[in-house]
Design a protein around this nucleic acid. Structure first.
Lengths: 342, 342
DNA sequence: CTGTTAGCGCCTTCAA
DNA sequence: TTGAAGGCGCTAACAG
């Protein structure tokens, strides 16, 4: 095992019998432009490999005032699906363009958030991605507005920062269309309600659902209100089923759908033959339920990618980019061809 | 809105009528040590605030050869719970010690992994955390071995790198003890089997379970083999129930437990009155099932914290740190006091 | 107690 | 086609 000290550019240059300048040009892929002899280039590259040379990013950053680093600050707390997939997408997009990601979680604490952003600015990040756990309209802090920033899963009307969000309204339409495609024999209900003030996903989904149903002359029969959690949905749907028999339930997320599944089972109703169920999220949970749940997918990874791309493209138009929500089909929706087994 | 250029240390010094040295000492909290007059200090701090001064990390890093940055590279792919919680823990621990985290996902690609590690080394990270999605014995790459590295959720016997893993064996014992605590009326089975070659969690859990049961004179009745997924577990348990009636099922993870729940329901068996169920993971899923599932928790966030702490403590003893797995109690285990409702 | 000085490693005009 | 020189912003000996 060679126990050499970390090699510097000048070491490489020395070993190759050239100046640091030449070595720098070559190692930065500008040898053609500088019309450096192929033989010199080979010698330098060999020397670099020999010494296991790695450029010192701090020095380069200091000189170039760029860091090829993107700061991602999020308010994610329990951070399940979202945090993870979003970071995966962002990280992959960054890699593709030779950047790297540093992360910070504000945990919803404004002071900590400012601290984290400050930290990243000191580090000279080339840009910031600010992500929220729930799709919401926010007020971006001064700090964010002064820097090159892309909002992820949220947007700010006052500041004209570019933003990337799922196309919830269209997602709502798609959910409704899934139900309609199978033919509707009775009443269609939505399960869930708006959780927190700033959040808007529920509202938009509901709008999309209403509009699509209305267009098909199957007006939405009503909304079963409940928190976006399994037990709350279970209770709410349980109570609801004591009063009526829906033909289809459109749940505002997969956890609600899980609660609905439990309640339907308790009432001896079989999915999809007695009741169709569709929901939103496209989480793993949808695949785990029996029958598999048809769900309109929140494309978290793609959101992360798009945000980073937007940031790095510089063009960063100031508008809101809406990313389509694809449908992950399970077997929870009645269809004309699907017959109840014995 | 002030549109000043970014202030340098020398600007602050000039505004405060001191030299850059003095300003540097003060801003780095060494004014006491340097016995700088309080008045001078106040003047400098005021100037810094006035100019909204932020130290340039690149310059500082270059000078000090430290970056207060930790690189986390993982092989996480779909990256659900684990990725997210582990990063949350690591990030929090880093923050606490004034460090920041840069992330990279190798997606199981060795070449990409080397690239990412190289990238981090260029950036001069103060240390590396290498994390795997499943607890496994690995062979750390040369690069890793040469750097200050802590292994997370994996370990390498040959290289003596410090490692942090969940205490799976003890977790197994705890799972068994949960079942035993309620009194065992019949046979206890384990559901699941070892997934991939390098993985060891299943084996250790099984050992812990066997030992704890044997110690209580309730030998393990058998193992129902299946993949660690909901549908596989459903099928396996379904088939198993056609042949026998267990008193308790210890599932090797929460997804398996979910499949078991589905199969038990199909056979008209009620949890926990007919069958007790315990599992591992402590994921959200455990809270969503009805009745809530008792699960031995994988303390991902804590693993992340411990890894970073170990890294930063320098002492970094070369051994394997086993983090205890706490039990999250639900209502899926029969207990002496729990009576079947009407 | 405070200022002067000298680099950290790299990039990049400017000359040769 | 290559080399010499200067400086990015900050820290830390070493003087005073």
């Amino acid at each position: 095992v060679r126990k050499t000290r970390k090699a510097r550019l000048s070491d490489v240059a020395a070993l190759a019998n050239v100046s640091a300048t030449t070595a720098s040009y070559i190692l930065n892929g500008r040898s053609a432009q500088m019309r450096i002899s192929p033989e010199t280039e080979a010698r330098v590259r060999r020397a670099a490999a020999e010494l296991d040379y790695r450029p010192n990013a701090s020095a380069r950053n200091l000189r170039t005032a760029r860091t090829r680093t993107i700061g991602v600050v999020s308010d994610l707390v329990a951070g399940g699906q979202f945090a993870s997939q979003m970071l995966t997408g962002a990280s992959a997009a960054a890699r593709r363009r030779d950047h790297v990601i540093v992360i910070g979680e504000s945990q919803g604490d404004a002071e900590l958030e400012a601290l984290l952003i400050g930290e990243m600015l000191e580090r000279g990040v080339d840009g910031l991605v600010y992500a929220t756990m729930v799709t919401a309209e926010i007020t971006a802090s001064r700090l964010l507005q002064q820097e090159r920033t892309v909002l992820l899963n949220c947007f700010d009307r006052t500041a004209s920062l570019p933003a990337v969000v799922p196309d919830e309204y269209d997602g709502g339409r798609r959910a409704a269309e899934e139900v309609l495609a199978g033919g509707v024999a009775g009443e269609v209900y939505v399960v869930g309600e708006m959780p927190s003030p700033g959040a808007i996903a529920g509202r938009l989904r509901l709008d999309g659902i209403s509009d699509a149903l209305a267009a098909a002359h199957v007006p939405l029969a009503g909304v079963v209100a409940c928190d976006w959690s399994v037990p709350a949905a279970y209770e709410a749907v349980h109570a609801f089923l004591a009063r009526g028999r829906p033909s289809a339930l459109i749940c505002l997320n997969d956890r609600i759908a899980m609660g609905a599944y439990q309640a339907l089972a308790l009432h001896g109703l079989e999915i999809p033959y007695d009741v169709s169920v569709v929901s939103f999220d496209g989480s793993e949970l949808a695949d785990w339920l029996r029958p598999r749940l048809t769900s309109v997918v929140l494309p978290y990874a793609e959101l992360g990618e798009r945000a980073v791309d937007l940031l790095l493209d510089g063009q960063a138009r100031t508008g809101v980019t809406r990313v389509p929500m694809p449908v992950a089909r399970g077997a929870s929706v009645r269809s004309r061809g699907r017959v109840r087994p014995f």
